[in-house]
Amino acid sequence: METPEQIQARLAARFPAAAVTLVPNPAPAGMAALLVDAAHARQIAFFLREDPELKLDYCSNATGIDWPEKEIVETTRSTLADPAGGPPRTIEQKTKRIQPGYLEVVYHLYSMARKHGPVILRVRTGNRTDQVTLPSLTPVWRSCEFQEREIYDLFGITFEGHPDLRRLLMWDEFTGHPMRKDYVEPDDYEWEPTPHEEVLEKAKRHYAAPEKEGTP
């Protein structure tokens, strides 16, 4: 099978407008993934499926990953020559940079016809709050149907063009996306407080506290 680099080159030639980058994987047996932009993801997916060389007709695994925003502290060192003629001083400068968070969907593609793979396809959202729409690849690979529903359910990524985008594992009234890294478990998943003592106690703590402080 072609290496990810070759595929990237071919994709770049075939879709000049699309941004296809390689995401390296430092693990021993790992292979690099192709990061494609959301706008061209479905076109590229169709291309990968139909390309006679690749024939990636089988999407084994589709999953979401949550990358919350990270504070990256970068230390830059600069050496300043002392104007007074003394030894040069080294100044450490710490700059804080906020790396914006995003959600990512990873597809592991194989070919049943040619029995090779995997090609790893990644698509990222703009951020974690309002730009969470990605094109659905269910029209390309039917196996994404439930997996994308699961991602929608647990990560909160909306898939455009999905035939039946509902929650898969959680119930329909559920709010929140449990697989996100910043998800906070509610005191009790049941809506009514159950007679179970611990739950009641938790609920009391939770609901009484704001009143004391006078906040709603």
């Binding site: 994987n25 430092p26 693990a27 021993p28 047996a29 084994s60 999953t63 990953i65 592991h108």
Partner: peptide, 24 residues
Amino acid sequence: RPKPGEAYGRIEGPKGEIGFYLIS
């Protein structure tokens, strides 16, 4: 503690392809 990276391991389980995708 594995080094950072990711791996997708799959085998032919009796019910089908059971895979695990890990990011370290």
